[in-house]
Amino acid sequence: MEHIISVLVENKFGVLSRVAGLFSGRGFNIESLSVAPSLDPSMSMMTIVTRGDDRIIEQIVKHLNKLIDVIKVVDLNESEFVERETALIKIHTKPEDRAEALRIADIFRANVIDSTPTTYTIEVAGDTKKIEGIINLLQPLGIKELVRTGRVAIAREPVRPVAAQPKRVAKE
């Protein structure tokens, strides 16, 4: 099963290779990995998308925790989470396709962030389905280049259930 694991690490050189080395050395797979500094600039947040049965995911989480530069590991699949990915898509546009390209971008609430007479560069954010959806629609127009950030995810804040009030109370 696919799992999204967020890993808070020390923001210093060599940490990425320790994490990557752990995955390659133990034969775990990485589908995507994204890293950037966290709120506290001395730490970075990594989001790793990986795959494996329960036993493998348990080992991945334990091994990540064992790395000395890793401060915190959360397997997001253990609760609700939201995920996003950004893609930058550069398309060739024949004059007659330009309106169609804009229309597709509009449907996906994507932005055109660069434009030349023969190309558009479109920025789109969303979950994997949405990204793949827009790619599928733009493909016939001619995608020149595609860059995806890989997924990032964050746990949903648990919503405290409002104590249900009985609609009517019958008293004797």
Binding site: E58, K62, H63, N65, K66
Partner: peptide, 8 residues
């Protein structure tokens, strides 16, 4: 002492 040894 090493959680990774357990259930490996």
């Amino acid at each position: 002492i090493d959680p990774t040894s357990i259930r490996k």
